[in-house]
Design a protein around this nucleic acid. Sequence first.
DNA 1: GCCTGAAGTAGACAGTGTCTACGCCTGCCT
DNA 2: AGGCAGGCGTAGACACTGTCTACTTCAGGC
Lengths: 194, 194
Amino acid sequence: MDADETGLRARLVAVGVDLVLREGQSAVSLREIARRAGVSHGAPRRYFPTHVDLLSAIAREGFADLTARVEKTMRDVDPDPRTRLTALARTYLDFAAAHRGMFELMFRHDLLDSGRLRLRETSLPLFAVLADLVAQLRRPTDAPAPVLAGALWANLHGIAQLWAWGSLPLATGATDDDALVRAALDAHLGPTPA
Amino acid sequence: MDADETGLRARLVAVGVDLVLREGQSAVSLREIARRAGVSHGAPRRYFPTHVDLLSAIAREGFADLTARVEKTMRDVDPDPRTRLTALARTYLDFAAAHRGMFELMFRHDLLDSGRLRLRETSLPLFAVLADLVAQLRRPTDAPAPVLAGALWANLHGIAQLWAWGSLPLATGATDDDALVRAALDAHLGPTPA
DNA sequence: GCCTGAAGTAGACAGTGTCTACGCCTGCCT
DNA sequence: AGGCAGGCGTAGACACTGTCTACTTCAGGC
């Protein structure tokens, strides 16, 4: 049992997560969530004084979900770092594609209060996994590990963004993002061994 | 003279551009633009039937501005392709940082109608400049030129996004994005010659 | 038995995008 | 010259949003 499934606070977040997954970020209004939770439009205010607070809680759930997926991938895939990193990249991009609304919300800094909920810090464990793998694969002539990891993350994130935007396939002629992922990994970490 | 500076249509777009630059994407409401243009709230509807249409026109202006800046950079910088590409990257990121609201709007596919205004196609000339430089610098073992260019663009774009989000400096410890830009270029095109 | 305080309700307010009916004024046609 | 049609902008309405505030309701402790 999830702590308190009956608690309104948890129910509001759950409804919000469901809503953002199903209908996208713009559908997540306070009143709509209240409606679907079966309470009056003023009820959420007790737990989330402002819209930003509720959205931040929902985004937090998204980061938790993504982190869980990455951890599961790390558990399932074999220990070769390059293989693991490739799997991580795929997990990241699959998440962005499958839960586009949530992914968008998670990085809409204008809608979120990353300070209060330690939202940014929530993504650090995720970055740590990436940084660890990158450190193992880093060649002596590469940039320092954190920078290299940051550049690679930015690359993955950019692929996700631009792919969603629709211009990338148009420009590159690619029909899926796999080629871009391979290109990114090869670029940052050297060509795939054999 | 810009076609018709007095035309309401152009004035609305100009006010919108000014507004998004000054106060960010969320400030750009139909009614606020109408107010600042000195017309009634219903007036924009004649030229922009829906909010999306007006926002798309504003974003289009943003792409035009970015393209102009890149072209100016290409005119000013010396012909070495690597130098030019570095300058292009800096121009892109500077634009994103200096005009954050506009940059955000330009890639908010949920707010724009990229179809009607050929918005996506508007970014193609920009991509062509990038692709051309990349083609000159591509090593035989690299990915095909369009893919390589796409990956590099994604990298730049991701840096801009994540930097704006605030997590990148936190994770990498970098204090500016220069290291990331260098890392990205080195990764995709090989280390800087000497 | 009362009373305090938490929890949710309900109404108001300003703001938004969209729709519709209405004036105005210009330029054209007979 | 007179009238008329159409483009342009106004003004009011509607449903919706987030936020604020006053109110009910109800359980637990003194």
